[in-house]
Design a binder for these strands. Sequence first.
DNA 1: GCAAAAGTACGATCGCTGTCAAACTTCGAC
DNA 2: GTCGAAGTTTGACAGCGATCGTACTTTTGC
Lengths: 111, 111
Amino acid sequence: MSYYVTMGRTPPHPEVSQFDLQQVLEALVDPVRRSIVTQLDSAGEDIKCGDFDMPVTKSTATHHFKVLREAGLIRQYYVGTARMNALRRAEMDEAFPGLLDALTTPARQPA
Amino acid sequence: MSYYVTMGRTPPHPEVSQFDLQQVLEALVDPVRRSIVTQLDSAGEDIKCGDFDMPVTKSTATHHFKVLREAGLIRQYYVGTARMNALRRAEMDEAFPGLLDALTTPARQPA
DNA sequence: GCAAAAGTACGATCGCTGTCAAACTTCGAC
DNA sequence: GTCGAAGTTTGACAGCGATCGTACTTTTGC
């Protein structure tokens, strides 16, 4: 367990300047992934992969986290064997003002 | 050419109370459809199907308009042989405040 | 060291959707 | 009425992406 090894397990994260609207929308259009974002937003704190409420297997969950991470929506880091997930709120707001607000705010009319 | 016939050609439109976020996002995730919405928004007036700048054939365009209409994003009506398209801005804002703003406002950071 | 826990990687399905071409319908103009 | 313009409908096709199971890796705790 060295610092180097830990870094080697840190996946790549895009910078704000690299955020792409198309990619972000493709990430958010999936209900499971949108639920992940919503849970992170309402929790207000980082959540480990295994602690989300999700109707899919672990391998599928890994896929969803990867899509969210590569779009810039979440930041992932390890704590022991657990992978923590943090919502990149401020950075998303900087790139796409109002977008996350519109999606995390409960809708007015719809059922 | 009677009033009845004209009505018979009017396609069904959902009411605001029936708008569904999932459906709206699925409509807006497609670049061609998002471009349609953007063009309507910046034009500020109704546009006929044939007057949009689109990289697809007519039959594909028909499909895209249908998806947008069924999601509640546009309202369609006939004027002669031309089918006009109106952005349902106010109704969308009522159902999902800030969503269209976030998508029609040019992004800050991204390329 | 070893086993268990937590995720990841890889292949394989499988359904959905964006696309087109071709045939058809509707309306307006002449 | 005939013709052209404008869209629609239908069927086919291709590619993508969500899903799962299985095998693998990494770390912690004993």
